[in-house]
Nucleic acid binder design. Structure first.
Lengths: 245, 245
DNA sequence: CGCGAGCTTGATGCCGATCAATGCATGTGG
DNA sequence: CCACATGCATTGATCGGCATCAAGCTCGCG
């Protein structure tokens, strides 16, 4: 029904940070035109990743960071014994691959949950450039720091919230990020399965499903498979906060 | 009544990275003498933090990173509704305060669990210097990246392990870090309470205590309050891995 | 149309939380 | 020096939330 099932891999003309509608979310935040031109020079390539494919995998050599341009990713760990943990979901404007800097190997898998495109940013070139452009350096450090803070938030969630609180926090986080990107805060389409949500939240898929049903019964959400309408965001927020324990 | 409610902050002689026995663990890893001299120049001050005191607190202005020189810290979040989460324990040679870079405010509390000393590293000066010394830049990025990877590991633990597996993983992590610092891998003194361990692991203190007792019964540990002898590290490791689920 | 992946819903059981009592070490004031 | 208080740890009894097991259900697709 849609016109283009296949993604177009070759851009007919150079698409640069300076012309990207994500430049206020992504690496070039707050940079001057001249600085952005220099950044453009190192963001040479694009890469398309179709749904289900890996952008990178655990153990793979690390050489680049990836800025999500379109689409949606999950990152996940799989310990040898079959334990599995989704460590994050990543949408347009977010940076992937920071985990690889520490050891020159990727420490998680990054899997596209829908057909996606990323900008490939050579890491050594980024290092070189950020030695020259202090704004870039500063911004890059902020991005890494915020990733650490985000992870701490997830630890709080996993360590001290009940199932419904977790799901509420998750949904609010998603809608918040969508709003930042100019989408509706009340209507969203989940890109991931109940099982993936469960893995991220430390719950089983049945529990996630039950929580969705509960929210629907209580009038907080309208749930139709992966189509979600947020009817009462305040009630979700109240769950995350006081909860009434 | 006391002459100095303020802790003694001035060292009678300059103690520098170049003379620090932690230089192989801390920020100066792999730096030349000349580079280290320049780093010394920005690590001007020390700060003592006595047991129970905060090195920094949520919301406090961020201006410096702190390298633990002696002692032991926990970092923790406390959401307004009383939820509490220990996000990490930090020992000599580890860097604290990375969370503050993203927003110029600290996003967690750092509390000394014993009388401690830290080296104060002005963040802006570190940024400036790391634009000149690519080795320093590289190393700093690695440290941040490893922090992210560490957090992912904790997410895996919180999301998918049972109580005893969590405690086993925690103990192995501690002994590993102590070994790196030249201490015995089999004998350790816990610096934190059962409640703090529980908060970090997403468990209640009673559950932590029961797990310790279980390990003692099974001959994996010898537990005398906070004095722990690891008798069978392989069995602990087996718990973390296969577990037998 | 029939298959399969993903989702929902119910029944049951277990792990860890909760509540409660006791033990143990340290510290303080009488 | 002892009595008592305080903070932390251990242990037991009970309870509840989520996992687990087990059917059906929905929807997209070959």
């Amino acid at each position: 029904m849609q016109p283009a099932p296949t993604t177009i891999r070759l851009e007919p003309f150079k698409v640069a940070c300076s012309g990207c509608n994500l430049r206020e979310l992504c690496l070039p935040v707050g940079m001057s035109d001249e600085q952005m031109d220099r950044l453009d020079a190192i963001v040479a390539t694009r890469r398309s990743v179709s749904r289900g494919e890996a952008l990178f995998r655990v153990g793979g050599a690390f050489s680049s960071l990836y800025a999500v341009r379109t689409g949606f990713f999950k990152t996940c760990l799989s310990s040898e014994d079959g334990r599995d943990q989704v460590t994050g979901f990543h949408m347009a404007g977010e940076l992937l691959g920071l985990d690889g800097i520490g050891t020159d190997r990727h420490t998680c898998d990054a899997i596209a949950l829908e057909d996606s495109q990323v900008c490939v940013i050579g890491y050594h070139q980024l290092e070189d450039l950020s030695r020259e452009l202090s704004d870039l350096q500063r911004h890059f450090h902020r991005i890494m720091s915020r990733e650490i803070v985000r992870d701490h938030g997830v630890m709080l969630l996993l360590g001290s919230m009940r199932a419904e609180e977790r799901l509420a926090a998750f949904l609010l986080n998603l809608t918040q990020r969508l709003r930042t990107r100019g989408f509706s805060a009340s209507s969203l389409v989940l890109r991931m399965t109940r099982e993936e949500i469960g893995s991220y939240l430390g719950l089983k898929l049945e529990t996630v499903s039950r929580a969705f049903s509960k929210f629907q019964d209580d009038g907080l959400l309208d749930v139709k498979q992966r189509q979600i309408q947020v009817l009462n965001p305040d009630a979700l927020q109240a769950l995350v906060n006081g909860s009434g324990c």
